[in-house]
């Protein structure tokens, strides 16, 4: 537990304002810490974490936009991620993904005593648990640590993942960034939306705009908003041709 002397900084995340109000009231009346901010969904939560650097996030699981599990997963990439306590009405299967002993979670309606206990033995999500979260439904965003903080790219804005030595370049509507995840795992996670065309390239099916022959006898793909043609490796040609025909 950090900040033993000073008050604990707490971020409350829930899409229902009355649910947030209740937690805030508990924190205030029981003097458990300072609520630095409230957020209504996962995306807001990530922004708030970057802005206020809270010690703890009380995170609802089912939220519109980005849910709590995914937000927690993105947050675990930060250098000093906050501890996370999930709050949920009825979602225990979502929590089976990781060892609930290690990560706090509270069932709604939350009791003030349970909240106290959870805050007194805070734990951060470790890499293994973050990975377990990854197995839950596919993410809505890809996150990357940049010098500005955690950058979130909506999946629908991404046209290409390209493996480049150790990292993967993510090409999206507003530019390009680097992430550190295996291409194979991305391929599995976004199956149906992205397709492997080459050992080093995974393209968004939605972004495909053309299929063409290139000089050396091979084939390449054209992507919307992307000047360069993406070469298709020989073993993927037949599959891609079929896919493009069906579009």
């Amino acid at each position: 537990m950090r900040n033993c002397e000073s008050n604990m900084k707490i971020l409350v995340v829930d899409d229902e304002s009355l649910a947030r109000a209740r937690l805030c009231r508990f924190i205030e009346t029981a003097e458990l810490g300072d609520v630095v901010c409230q957020a209504q969904n996962g995306i807001e939560a990530i922004e708030a974490v970057e802005k206020f650097a809270p010690d703890v996030v009380l995170m609802d699981i089912q939220m519109p936009g980005m849910d709590g599990l995914e937000a927690a997963q993105h947050l675990s990439q930060l250098d000093t991620p906050p501890a996370i306590i999930f709050t949920t009405a009825y979602d225990e299967y979502a929590l089976q993904a990781f060892d609930v002993q290690a990560v706090g979670y509270l069932l709604k309606p939350v009791r003030v005593d349970d909240l106290k206990t959870a805050l007194s033995r805070l734990t951060k999500i470790n890499k293994v648990q973050a990975h377990a979260l990854n197995k839950s439904p596919r993410r809505s965003h890809i996150s990357a640590k940049t010098h500005q903080g955690l950058e979130l790219i909506p999946i629908e804005n991404i046209s290409l993942f390209r493996a480049d030595h150790k990292y993967i370049s993510v090409f999206h509507k507003l530019g390009e960034l680097l992430i550190d995840e295996p291409l194979k795992e991305l391929e599995d996670e976004f199956e149906g939306e992205f397709v492997r065309v080459h050992r080093n390239a995974l393209v968004s099916i939605k972004a495909i705009s053309g299929f063409e022959k290139v000089d050396d006898g091979g084939y390449a793909l054209r992507l919307t908003g992307f000047d360069e043609a993406i070469p298709i490796s020989r073993r993927h040609v037949a599959g891609i041709r079929k896919l493009v025909k069906g579009l």
Partner: peptide, 14 residues
């Protein structure tokens, strides 16, 4: 169940 427990939570808050 999700509806039930969320409603209970709201009532507790109200």
């Amino acid at each position: 169940p999700h509806f039930l427990f969320n409603s209970m939570n709201i009532i507790a808050s109200l």
